[in-house]
Design a protein around this nucleic acid. Sequence first.
DNA 1: GGTTGACCTGAAATGCGTTTCATAGTTTAT
DNA 2: ATAAACTATGAAACGCATTTCAGGTCAACC
Lengths: 335, 335
Amino acid sequence: MANIREIAALAGVSVSTVSRVLNHHPYVAADKREAVLKAIHELQYTPNRNAVNLAIGATRMIGVILPFTNHPYYSGMLEGISAHALEHHYDIILCQTNYDVAEEERALQMLRDKLVDGIIVCSKQGDWALFETYASYGPIVVCEYTDSPYLSSVYADFYKSTIEAMNTLIAEGHRRIGYCLGRTNSYNSQQRLAAYKAQLQSIGEEVREEYCFFHCYHFDEGAEVLRSMLAFSKPPTALLVAGDQAACGIVIEAGKRGIQVPSDLSVIGFDNIPIAKVLELSTFDYVSYDIGTTAFDTFYRQWEAQAADSGPVEKHELPCQIIARSTVGPAPKKQ
Amino acid sequence: MANIREIAALAGVSVSTVSRVLNHHPYVAADKREAVLKAIHELQYTPNRNAVNLAIGATRMIGVILPFTNHPYYSGMLEGISAHALEHHYDIILCQTNYDVAEEERALQMLRDKLVDGIIVCSKQGDWALFETYASYGPIVVCEYTDSPYLSSVYADFYKSTIEAMNTLIAEGHRRIGYCLGRTNSYNSQQRLAAYKAQLQSIGEEVREEYCFFHCYHFDEGAEVLRSMLAFSKPPTALLVAGDQAACGIVIEAGKRGIQVPSDLSVIGFDNIPIAKVLELSTFDYVSYDIGTTAFDTFYRQWEAQAADSGPVEKHELPCQIIARSTVGPAPKKQ
DNA sequence: GGTTGACCTGAAATGCGTTTCATAGTTTAT
DNA sequence: ATAAACTATGAAACGCATTTCAGGTCAACC
């Protein structure tokens, strides 16, 4: 592989001139430019990206931290990030963590070690303090709410949307409402749970432990929830489900077990994944794609603005609309 | 940010000694090692990865070329690659192409430009020649069959599995069999189509254009296929579907339209995605995850073996087993 | 006693492109 | 006519870590 010095020698100019041609600087005479281009073509030269990165102190790469990709919530976000990264000629380094904090830290170190210009955190397990520690090395954008003054944040208001979902069900006369969530300890889950409890309280219903299901991510986990409900003497008449995959699992399993949706059981999902439409699932249009694009744009502004120091942190709340389809109906009369 | 020279100065040693400590070389006196470690700790030093990459001529990064991530086939593959990459301390650069050949080439250039040590191609649009051009710069592993002597290949025999699927349907008495595919021009699709036609011929059935549906990737595209079949005077009694997402869309839509599966219509999918289990879809266990892990391992062996030159290309055929569930049944009696 | 080999260390070269600075020839403005 | 402002170019420094090479010490073995 040829390097810039060989090009300079072949073209009969200095390396500075070659570099100028490469970077479209003005002040290069037409004939020398021609000579350089000819030499580049002859030797099939392309700059070594590592040398460029080292010299300019930037890589046009961004690290994306997420637990896994085989879930529409994250792959949607990734699509969004990817789309806007492409536009700005950025590449993505994927840091799949499986919610392992050590992996999260390893990803953050890439920022410190100059391997990436910034970090987007789709979901995390570690404390905010961990992420704040690395914020001085470059922009970090988190796809979750945080009031940290060091971290940018792009999020939807899950408290608000959960209230809305609950009110929708309550308006249909439901009182025995269950909730299916993913993790117990995330900020998002806690917000949702708080809203759930608040609205139950507002109609004078107590919170029943057995109506709250956790670790519901996938289709079969949703199906499992429905099966376990069969044993209840007083099963919920409505379920709020934090992810469409689990919600679809519930709806499909209900169909198999002869439970009519929505006349026996109402279901509201979250995410609006493609299959939700096919199954006519009522859900929330949490466009994870938009979260992704906004997160990238936020990073990019911060990066560009960091002329002297670091650009200002941004906070963006994205809307999250309910999509009424066919899985919500009035509560059954006799209970 | 401190650099290695500052560490050397603070510890009172040469940069070589610091480098030795950093890289766990033997032959460093205990007291000097201590001094270096102390200096590193004091100045919070970590090596600049770009400088390391430039010096050693490798990056421990691998480029993954795929059209999009929000499809279980690809996100599964990505999970597999990711898992084994993690084990070997490799990071992944995601090159999402949307089947744009220009983007594919941009990704390949990262190999030439020393940004990645190798490339895994999950699916591509460009000619093999394009990829072969870049093979001299490092290992390229393709998740698709190719006899190119320059490219490693990890694949399942789709011809064989399509034959098996056809025979399963034929054994149940089906004669009007339709096929839903993704792209028309990929090698995989062509193999499948060839097997489909061969088996139709073997039972003396002609190939009907209107029984072949293309661009079936997603749930709603599957639903659309079913809806369009409603207009047929003689609809197929069985469908082979190249992806589970489309197959699930078909099954769900059939349920809505009062078409019984499998008594009115048999369906065989492909991929064995999670929802296939919930819907009891008969399918093929094309474990894209395993393709991913095998692809990474293949890359890694080639990379390790390239001591002098480039390691030998490998070809791996992975098994692909049929999973009988509940969407295949005997052909309807009266037609 | 002398040779061999293991252990330890640093100067300098290397990987490669960017950028600053100094120099010099040309215009343009005054 | 002369200062000011461009245009053009190369040498050298810089970003930073790795690696080779040469030199030196010390113990062990013949």
